[in-house]
Design a protein around this nucleic acid. Structure first.
Lengths: 152, 152
DNA sequence: TGCTATTTGCAAATCAGTGTCAAGAAGGTC
DNA sequence: GACCTTCTTGACACTGATTTGCAAATAGCA
C-alpha cells in the first residue's frame, strides 16, 4: 500500500482548508492535524492510532476530539471509514479500491489489491434507488494458516 | 428482498437438527430459536436485533447465549456473519450466493441477486494460500430512504 | 477588541462483545 | 424413569470502542 507523496498531502490539506471556508466551518488546528495524520498513514489506522500520531504535533489533543474530527472528515468526504472484522473502525485517506479475503475459521481479514476485480460493471446492477458509490468483493474461505492447522 | 418461505425455513431448521445429531452437539431450545429468528428476518439483523426477536419465543434468553449461538451457527455454516456493514456485525441466513447493498448512512443491508455478478473469475485472483469457497460483492452507497431524508 | 457560534476537553455514559462460573438442560445408560 | 456426564445457559463483571453532556476555550468576523 503506497504511502501518499508529501505534495499530494499538502494538496489535500489545501483542499480541506478551502472547503472549510466555503462551508463556514472553523478550521481548527485539531481538525487539520487529524486529516494530516490520516493522510500520512500508509495503512488503515484505527482512531486510536490516529490519536497517537496526532499527539506528536498537538500533544494535548483529546481522544474525543479525534473521534469528532474523523466524523467531520468522513462527512466531508476527505476520509473514508472502513469496518473490518475487528471491534474498531479504520480510516483511510486514500480512496483506492481494495477487496477482502475473509477466513471462515479464524475470521481474519486480508486486504487484496486486484485490478481485474476493479473492472466490474456497476451500471448493470439493478439498484432500486440505491446510489452506489463504490464496491468491494469479499472472498470467503479458509486461510493458509487454518488450512495447515486443521486439514479436515 | 425476498423473505424466506415458511417451508424453506422449516427445511433449514431440520437440516440443523440433523447436523447437530451428526456432531453430537446438544440441540437446545435456544440455538434452535436463534437460527429460526435469523431465518425469519428478511433483513440482516445485528446480534441485539436477533435477541429481541428470539425473546418473543424464549422470553428468558440471555444476550450472552444469543452471541454464543450465533457463533456456533456461523461455525456450522448455517448463518453468515457480515462485517463491513457498520459498527456491529450483522447476520444472514441465506447461504446461496448473493450480494449486498450497504448504506453508508444507516448501515442497512439490502440483498441483491444479480446473475452477471456471479460470473466472476475467481481463478484469476491471486490468493496466496487462501482457499476460496465463495464470494460476495458489497456495494457501498446511500439508500433511497437516506437520500430522501438528507438531500445534501 | 469584542461578540457569537462552534469546537474542545474532560468525565461519565453507552455500546458491542467477551470471560467467568455456578446452576441447568441434553443425550445417552441402566 | 433415575442417573450420570458433558456441554450449555444465564447472570454478572469486564474490556475496549465510541458517544454524550456540559463548561471553558477558540475561530471567524464586525
Amino acid at each position: 500500500m503506497a504511502k501518499m507523496a508529501p505534495d499530494q498531502i499538502a494538496e489535500r490539506l489545501d483542499a480541506f482548508e478551502t472547503r472549510c471556508r466555503q462551508l463556514g466551518l472553523p478550521l481548527t488546528t485539531q481538525r487539520h492535524a487529524v486529516l494530516r495524520a490520516v493522510l500520512e498513514h500508509h495503512d488503515h489506522p484505527t482512531a486510536d492510532q490516529v490519536l497517537e500520531t496526532v499527539r506528536d504535533r498537538v500533544p494535548g489533543i483529546s481522544r474525543t476530539t479525534v473521534y469528532r474530527a474523523l466524523d467531520t472528515l468522513v462527512a466531508l468526504g476527505f476520509v473514508r471509514r472502513l469496518h473490518h472484522a475487528g471491534p474498531s473502525a479504520r480510516f483511510d485517506g486514500q480512496t483506492h479500491r481494495h477487496h477482502h479475503l475473509i477466513c471462515d475459521k479464524c475470521h481474519k481479514v486480508i486486504d487484496l489489491q486486484d485490478e481485474s476485480l476493479d473492472r466490474l460493471h456497476i451500471s448493470e446492477v439493478h439498484a432500486e434507488g440505491f446510489q452506489i458509490e463504490d464496491f468491494s468483493v469479499h472472498f470467503m474461505g479458509i486461510c493458509r494458516a487454518c488450512r495447515r492447522s486443521e486439514p479436515s
